[in-house]
Computed example of a mutant assay.
Amino acid sequence: MAATLELAERSPSDDSLPTTPVHEGRPAPASAARRRARRAASLVVCLGMWQLAVHWRLTLGIVTFANVPAPSDVVPALWALLHSPKLPMHLFASLLRVLIGFCAAAVVGVGLGLAIGRYRMLEDTLLPPLEILRPIPAVAWIPLAILMFPSSELSMMFITFIGALFPILLNTVHGVEAVDPRLVATARSLGTRGLSLYTEIILPGAAPAIFTGLSIGMGTAWFCLVTAEMIAGQYGIGYFTWESYTLQNYADIVVGMMLIGALGMGSSMLIKRLGTALTPWYRLRETHR
């Protein structure tokens, strides 16, 4: 109590107080610029090493770069694809499949995760079969997807759904279980019950973990896209990549891989930014490295 009174009696002009505001979790502009420069430099170095490895036909035991396309081969192929009239159709087909599969996985994963995380009976009855299904790779679902759905489009959306579901589900469960029980007990003592308990306590407390799961799930959905578009189809970035392999257009394979990686990274970052904006009560404190 005495320490509290002592702090309250200090004047704002006390020399012990900081004279400049401190923005926790926000690096200074110069520091942010240096980080961006380091990241750009790392990409340039990786591309340079890739070019040199192909140029010198580097062989590292069981790994060889003798037949790998170099960046100097990939850039013209990327330029050609960017000017191809099929690119918008490829992008639209892939974006639609990933978006529908991801949205369905988000609804099911978050809904089940909120229920399983709160009720032990549901955890005991629903989580074991889900845990058995979780390690099954997406490619193993292709035969069943073809048998279960009347169209190839629905089958491809199902594969992306399966890929995104489990990261979202498990992160939601862990987020709900990590909510401080004292918050729940306090809310109940104040009369909060039922749906209000979820919307006012459980969901805000688990929201950071949920958005982490959504971000990972979006990346996994793109990861499963090539597998999904192996089923059938005439358009899609995954289909373009697989077709390039069958036609031995090796530079186009790398182009398709780069597009999937860029789209997956961009969409995951978008969800992460959205989660940061929607959870102002939660900020990760960055440490200086």
Rank of each mutant, 00 (worst) to 15 (best):
L82F: 13
L82N: 04
L82H: 14
H83L: 13
H83Q: 11
H83M: 13
H83V: 12
S84Y: 05
S84E: 15
P85A: 02
K86M: 15
L87N: 11
L87W: 10
L87S: 15
L87Y: 11
L91E: 08
L91Y: 01
L91F: 08
L91M: 09
F92E: 15
A93C: 13
A93L: 01
A93V: 03
A93D: 04
A93P: 02
A93F: 08
S94R: 04
S94F: 04
S94D: 13
L95I: 11
L95Q: 07
L96P: 01
L96Q: 14
L96E: 15
R97F: 02
R97T: 07
V98K: 00
V98W: 01
V98Y: 02
I100K: 04
G101I: 06
G101W: 00
G101R: 00
F102V: 07
C103N: 05
A104M: 10
A105Q: 00
A105R: 03
A106W: 01
A106M: 03
A106V: 05
A106L: 06
V107M: 10
V107H: 04
V108C: 09
V108S: 05
G109D: 02
V110F: 07
V110C: 05
V110P: 00
V110K: 00
V110M: 03
V110W: 00
G111L: 09
G111T: 10
L112D: 07
L112S: 01
G113W: 00
G113I: 01
L114Q: 05
L114I: 03
A115F: 06
I116K: 03
I116M: 14
I116L: 12
G117C: 04
G117W: 05
R118Y: 10
R118I: 00
R118P: 06
Y119L: 11
Y119D: 14
R120F: 12
R120G: 06
R120Y: 02
M121V: 14
M121H: 15
M121I: 14
M121G: 14
L122R: 00
L122Q: 02
L122N: 01
E123Q: 12
E123K: 08
E123T: 05
E123M: 05
D124C: 09
T125L: 07
T125S: 11
T125D: 14
T125F: 14
L126A: 07
L126V: 13
L127Y: 04
L127E: 11
L127K: 04
L127P: 13
L127R: 08
P128Y: 07
P128I: 15
P128A: 03
P129Y: 11
P129M: 09
P129S: 13
L130W: 04
E131R: 06
E131T: 10
I132F: 14
I132M: 11
L133S: 09
L133Y: 00
R134L: 10
R134V: 06
R134N: 10
R134E: 07
P135N: 12
P135K: 08
P135S: 07
I136D: 06
I136C: 06
P137Y: 14
V139T: 15
V139N: 04
V139D: 02
A140M: 14
A140G: 06
W141R: 01
W141M: 06
W141Y: 03
I142H: 02
I142G: 02
P143K: 09
